[in-house]
Computed example of a mutant assay.
Amino acid sequence: MSSSGSPKDNSFVNMVNPYMNELKMHPKELLLKDGKVQVEDVRGPKGEGSLEARMEKLEQEVFKYNKVAEREVEIVHKINAELIAEHKKETAELWDDIFSLH
C-alpha cells in the first residue's frame, strides 16, 4: 500500500469524519461592527521582544493558570468533602429515627 493514499481513501475519510475539512480550515472569528457581522481570519500573537522574553512570559502565564487550576481542584475537593460529610450526618440521623421506631 502506498502512503499517499488514493482519492477514494480521502473521500472515505471525509465520509467517516465530516468535520475533518472544518478542522483543516484556518480559524475565523466573528466580529460585530456597526450592527453587521464580519468574518475575519484569526491573527496570531504579535512577536514583541526576543524569543527568550516571550518564552519566559508564556512560562509565567502557564504557571499562573496552573496555580488557578490547582486552587479550583482544591475547592472542588473541599465542597465534595463537605457534601459527603453532610450526607453522612443526615443518613445517620435518619437511621437513628428508623431504629427508634423499632
Rank of each mutant, 00 (worst) to 15 (best):
V76S: 15
K78Q: 15
N10H: 02
K33E: 14
K24G: 10
A92E: 13
I84M: 08
S100F: 04
S4V: 12
V13S: 10
Y65T: 14
S100C: 04
K33F: 05
N14K: 09
N17I: 12
S11L: 11
K78R: 15
K33S: 06
T91D: 10
A92T: 05
L32H: 02
L94Y: 13
E29F: 10
K57L: 05
I84D: 14
P45S: 01
E61F: 11
E82T: 08
E56Y: 02
K67S: 12
E52T: 06
S6V: 00
H77W: 09
K88T: 08
W95I: 13
V42R: 07
P27C: 04
E29R: 14
K33A: 06
K67F: 02
E61S: 11
E29W: 06
D96C: 03
A85Y: 00
M20D: 05
K46T: 03
G44T: 03
L31H: 14
A92L: 07
E59Q: 11
M55W: 03
S6P: 01
F63N: 10
E74W: 09
N21E: 12
K36V: 09
K33Q: 07
L83S: 12
W95P: 02
R43V: 00
W95M: 08
G49D: 01
H77M: 13
N10Y: 01
R54A: 01
H87N: 09
A85I: 01
K88A: 10
K24P: 01
F12P: 01
L30A: 12
K28L: 08
S4Q: 05
V37W: 07
S2Y: 05
L31C: 07
A53P: 04
D96V: 03
E72D: 14
R43L: 04
K36Q: 11
L58D: 08
N17C: 09
Y19D: 06
V62Q: 15
G47M: 05
S2M: 05
D41N: 00
A69I: 10
E29Y: 10
E74V: 09
S6F: 06
V42G: 00
A69T: 13
A81C: 06
S3D: 11
Q60G: 05
M20V: 13
K28E: 00
N21M: 08
A53T: 11
E61I: 09
N14S: 06
L23C: 12
G5D: 01
K8L: 15
V16T: 13
S2T: 05
N10R: 10
L51M: 05
E93K: 05
M15C: 08
L51W: 04
A81E: 15
A69G: 07
V62R: 09
I84S: 09
P7D: 04
E90H: 06
